[in-house]
């Protein structure tokens, strides 16, 4: 309310909202509120982690196969980037508490650069998945017309392909014209034979290995076998579940990063204006909590998605 100053004539520090009595109360409210929000976030991601655990314990080999195909180097690099960004964020809070304007600004800018680096790496990884045809949503992978020279595609009788073809028929025809016309020559060493942009997975070596070693669980046998035979299509579907979980989890995490960067931009502007002082720094502190939370989520995502299952031989 604009008129609160008229109603209450006691002293109002800048940044104190009308519903609070003093800065301490406001600070405490913001802090509890942020923690409650983070609890909410934990439950949100918790649902996803549950789904991950259920399916990982159901199809460990498929998950290992999918996991092995992820690039650990990028993932590890990103982990370092995020941890460093948490440090710069913590420093930003520290300098805000001391009321040092320029130091804050620098730290916030550093945090933003590191956050952007993380997202950049993530998009490189996503692009690789797109090129490899392992985005689990049909139509979101690189499409190429079936070329006669490279007609070595090994899963022609895949019913999934047929279904997708009938679904996407008009779109894929259009798309194919453009892609095959422009890029056919340039794609010498990488031949993509995926006219519908569907999910492709041919590597069943891990499942074969497990079969030989006789350590497939009964749930896996149900999941991978057709009439007692290892079925590449069924194995592929389970790998697809892994990639789906991978994309949803990292995607939601990236969304949180983007929101975090938005927050940082706002903080940067405020800090530049010199809003935050030793008395009033709770926005920086709260944004810091949020940033650390997003960081911690990644600390869990990285081993679960990239590292678990890597001890199995094979893969890439």
């Amino acid at each position: 309310m604009a008129t609160h100053a008229d109603v209450h004539d006691h002293y109002h520090p800048p940044g104190l909202q009308h519903q609070f009595e003093d800065m301490g109360q406001q600070q405490e409210s913001a802090s509890i509120g942020m923690w409650m929000f983070l609890v909410q976030e934990i439950m949100f991601f918790g649902g996803l982690f549950t789904v991950y655990l259920v399916f990982r314990s159901k199809y460990p080999m498929a998950f290992a196969a999918g996991s092995n195909h992820l690039d650990v180097a990028w993932g590890a690099g990103n982990t370092v980037v995020l941890i460093v960004s948490s440090l710069t964020m913590a420093l930003a809070v520290h300098y805000a508490q001391l009321g040092k304007r320029m130091a804050q600004v620098v730290c916030i800018i550093l945090t933003m650069i590191l956050g952007t680096m993380f997202l950049g790496v993530k998009s490189i990884e996503y692009a690789a998945k797109y090129n490899d045809g392992i985005v689990p949503v049909t139509g979101l992978n690189r499409r190429t017309a079936v070329s006669h020279e490279a007609g070595t595609y090994s899963l022609p009788s895949d019913p999934n392909m047929q279904r997708n073809q009938s679904l996407d028929a008009p779109a894929s025809v259009e798309q194919n014209k453009g892609v095959s016309g422009e890029q056919h020559g340039a794609e010498k060493e990488h031949v993509y034979v995926n006219p519908t942009g569907s999910f492709i997975w041919e590597d069943i070596s891990l499942a074969q290995l497990a079969e030989k070693g006789n350590f497939l669980t009964s749930a896996e046998k149900i999941g991978y076998y057709t009439n007692g035979q290892l079925d590449p299509h069924k194995f592929r579907d389970k790998v697809r579940i892994f990639y789906w979980i991978y994309f949803v989890m990292t995607g939601l995490h990236a969304l949180h990063m983007i929101i975090g960067l938005g927050l940082m931009a706002w903080l940067l502007w405020k800090a530049w204006l010199g809003t935050f002082t030793a008395d009033y720094y709770s926005p920086v502190e709260m944004s810091g909590l949020y940033w650390h939370f997003v960081d911690i989520v990644w600390i869990f995502l990285f081993p679960l998605l990239y590292l678990l299952g890597r001890h199995f031989a094979g893969g890439h």
């Binding site: 047929q162 149900i222 999941g223 057709t226």
Partner: peptide, 10 residues
């Protein structure tokens, strides 16, 4: 039914 219903065309 087989172990996992494969009866739907996908």
């Amino acid at each position: 039914i087989t172990s996992e219903p494969t009866n739907r065309q996908r």
